[in-house]
Simulated assay, not measured.
Amino acid sequence: MKLYLLCPTCGSDDIKKNGTTRRGKQNYRCRDCGRQFVEDPQWKRIEPDRTALIDRLLLEKIPLAGIARVMEVSEDWLQRYVNEYYEQVPQQTQVESKPKGSHQVQMDELWSFVDHKGNKQWVWLALDVVTREIIGCFIGDRSKESAQGLWESLPAVYRQCGVVYTDDWEAYKSVLPSKRHRVVGKETGLTSYIERFNNTLRQRVSRLVRKTLSFSKSIENHKAAIWNFIHHYNEQLHVTG
């Protein structure tokens, strides 16, 4: 009796039985392309439009467990997908080139942690006052070396020409060029844009929400999640600008 099944890969109806799976379900094999499959599989292939939606959900304040529930996928599958996705996220700024001239930069740092609150990871950020782009980021401790990492993450034109506004944290003073470094208080409003972005990060990236249960367990994914949002944020500036 001919089987009324179609191969999920090539669409052929030249199908034969091919034993059973380890769960006891009937296995089939396509004679044309060799694909093996079962009828009505428990786990189905995630279509590209669904993975695109997952990509967008990763930019919202939703923990992975919540995304798995909404998308009706297993948490194990989602974690593997996220690991592969985050491996492809560039960890350097991607902003439009700027001409040499006067550029104003605001810098600030944001506390976070990985795995437990004893493993503090500070997110150091730099913002272009005119374009509002995030032009630099470094994630590490709160030392001079991390401040140096932030400085080196800036495109060359900002390191050559930028006037930088920061708070009174000592690490900045030991790294930034003294002639172009301005130490200011919050009351001046001269670091208000970067402080506002810090709030945006806490509102949009679930692992940065205060008292969150959606914290990072690996430093690699922690960094990639933050960089992923930074790239999205800068892209949206260009769309709406």
Rank of each mutant, 00 (worst) to 15 (best):
W77K: 09
W111T: 10
Y165M: 13
S216M: 12
I67L: 04
E75L: 15
K211S: 10
K61A: 12
K17D: 08
V82Q: 07
W77M: 11
F113H: 11
S178A: 15
E187Q: 12
Q236I: 12
S192K: 14
N221I: 05
W43A: 12
R210K: 15
K144P: 04
Y86G: 02
V129K: 09
S74D: 08
F215I: 09
G241N: 14
V129N: 03
R210W: 08
T20D: 13
L58R: 00
C10A: 07
K44M: 08
E195V: 10
R69N: 03
E187K: 10
N234L: 05
F229L: 07
R204S: 13
W77C: 12
K44D: 06
G24E: 03
D108T: 07
T9I: 14
R69D: 04
G189S: 01
P8R: 05
N228S: 11
Y158W: 06
S153A: 02
S178T: 13
V205P: 02
P90R: 11
K117N: 15
I134N: 08
E47G: 11
E75I: 15
R196H: 08
R50M: 11
V95Q: 02
L3P: 08
I139P: 04
T200M: 06
Q104M: 11
P48H: 13
L64W: 00
D55Y: 05
K211T: 10
Y86V: 05
V114H: 00
G118I: 03
I46H: 01
C137Y: 00
N234K: 01
T20C: 14
Q36A: 13
K179H: 12
P177I: 10
F113R: 08
R142G: 11
K98E: 05
L127A: 03
F113C: 11
S214Q: 06
G241E: 15
R196I: 01
L237Y: 00
T166N: 01
L127G: 01
S102Q: 13
W169G: 06
Q104K: 06
K179C: 09
F37Y: 06
Q92R: 13
K144Y: 06
F197G: 04
S74F: 10
P8A: 08
E84Y: 05
V73H: 04
K120W: 12
S112F: 03
Q148I: 15
H222G: 04
K217G: 08
Y4Q: 09
T188G: 08
E145Y: 13
K120Y: 08
Q26P: 00
D168G: 13
Q94W: 11
L213A: 12
E75V: 15
I135F: 04
L150P: 14
G140N: 03
R182W: 00
F229T: 00
L208T: 01
D49G: 06
P90H: 07
I67C: 00
E47R: 12
S216C: 11
K25V: 15
V82E: 02
S206Y: 04
Q104L: 07
W43H: 15
Y4F: 07
E84C: 07
E96T: 10
D76A: 15
L57K: 10
G140L: 00
A171Q: 00
I134P: 10
Q121E: 09
L110Q: 09
